[in-house]
Design a protein around this nucleic acid. Structure first.
Length: 290
DNA sequence: CCAACCGCGTTCAGGACAAA
DNA sequence: TTTGTCCTGAACGCGGTTGG
C-alpha cells in the first residue's frame, strides 16, 4: 500500500537535495546562533532573511510526487500523467503550463481532446526541519510551530489557483469538459469553505484536494471535507485512486452565463425539441453561447 | 472611554530561476 | 531584457478585547 504525502517525504527532500546539488545555505535559514532551520520558529526574534533558492526545488519535488501518484492511476486506463503540458487552446502557454495533466498522449504539446484532467499543484514543505552540526535532518515541529503559512492555507495560493483555473475555463469552449483539480498538502482556511463548494457546484473547479492524511502532529481535528466536497482530504492511496478514476469516467460539461429567466425559458423550449436527453443537453449548451 | 494591543486574514513586496 | 512562476516574510486593515 502506497502512502500519500508524509513527514518522512520532506526529510527525503532535504537529504536528496543536499546530496545532489544544494548547499545548506540554499535550503535553510541561518539563525543568529548559527542553527540551520527550514522555517523561522514562531517565537524567533533574531535577524531574519528570506531565501528563495529553495522554492523551485520544492516545486519540482512536489510536482514529481504528484505525477508519480497520478501516473500509477492513469495507467489503469491506458492514460499518462504528464508534467508541464502546453496547450495554447486552453490558455496553457509555454510560460504558463499545466503543472500536471492526465492525457491520452505523453507529449508536452497537447490538444484539448486528448486531455482528461488538469491538475494545479500547490504544495509546500510543512514541517520545520533543522540541519544539525553533525549533518542530521531532525524535525522541530509541524506548521503550527513556525512562521510559514504553507500550501492551500495561503489566501494568495488559493486566489492563484482559482485565477489560473478560470483562465483555462474562459480560454475556449474546448476547455469546458475538462475537469480541473487543485492538489495541496494542507487543509484550507475557514474563509474558503463555502467558496470551494460553490466553485465545485458551479463547475469551475472540481475539487481542492489535500493528499496529506496527517498535516499536524497533534491535531484537535483536521478538516476532512467541506459540505459539498469542494475540499477533500485523502487518507490513503486507494481513496485517491477512486476519486481520480471517477473524474476520468464521468464526462461532464462546464457552462455559465448571465441571462434572464425569460431568455433561459426560450432556450430551454428550443432545446427541448431535440430527441434524446443527450441531444437536448448539447443543443442547450449551443444555444447558451449565442 | 479610548488608545493600545491582539489575532486573523489579505495584500504587498521581492529574490531566484527559467524561458522567450 | 522582460515576463511569469515559484516560494516566502512583512505590512496592512479590521474587529474585538484589554487596561489605564
Amino acid at each position: 500500500m502506497e502512502s500519500l504525502w508524509t513527514k518522512d517525504l520532506e526529510k527525503q527532500f532535504f537529504i536528496e537535495s543536499l546530496k545532489n546539488y544544494a548547499s545548506p545555505e540554499q535550503l535553510f535559514y541561518v539563525t543568529d546562533d548559527k542553527r540551520y532551520l527550514a522555517y523561522w520558529p514562531k517565537n524567533y526574534k533574531g535577524t531574519k532573511s528570506t531565501i528563495q533558492s529553495r522554492n523551485s526545488l520544492v516545486g519540482k519535488f512536489t510536482e514529481k510526487k504528484v505525477v508519480g501518484f497520478l501516473d500509477r492511476i492513469a495507467r489503469k486506463r491506458d492514460l499518462h500523467a504528464v508534467q508541464g503540458v502546453i496547450c495554447d487552446k486552453l490558455g496553457l502557454t509555454a510560460r504558463s503550463r499545466a503543472d500536471v495533466v492526465i492525457s491520452k498522449k505523453r507529449d508536452l504539446w497537447q490538444s484539448p481532446e486528448d486531455i482528461l484532467l488538469i491538475v494545479e499543484v500547490k504544495m509546500s514543505l510543512l514541517w520545520n526541519w533543522e540541519l544539525t552540526k553533525s549533518g542530521e535532518i531532525i524535525c522541530l515541529g509541524d506548521y503550527s510551530t513556525h512562521q510559514g503559512n504553507p500550501s492551500l492555507l495561503r489566501s494568495d495560493s488559493m486566489l492563484k489557483a482559482i485565477g489560473k483555473s478560470l483562465n483555462i475555463r474562459i480560454s475556449s469552449y474546448e476547455a469546458a469538459d475538462i475537469p480541473i483539480i487543485v492538489i495541496g498538502n494542507t487543509p484550507i482556511a475557514n474563509s474558503y469553505f463555502s467558496k470551494v463548494d460553490i466553485l465545485k457546484s458551479t463547475g469551475v473547479i472540481q475539487g481542492f484536494w489535500s493528499i496529506n492524511p496527517k498535516p499536524l502532529d497533534n491535531p484537535d481535528s483536521v478538516l476532512k471535507k467541506t459540505k459539498k466536497n469542494g475540499f477533500y482530504k485523502f487518507d490513503n492511496y486507494t481513496e485517491l485512486e477512486k476519486a481520480v478514476l471517477d473524474l476520468l469516467q464521468n464526462q461532464k460539461r462546464f457552462f455559465a452565463s448571465m441571462k434572464s429567466h425569460k431568455e433561459l425559458g426560450h432556450i430551454i423550449e428550443k432545446a427541448n425539441k431535440a430527441k434524446t436527453h443527450e441531444e437536448k443537453g448539447k443543443l442547450f449548451i449551443e444555444l447558451l453561447k449565442e
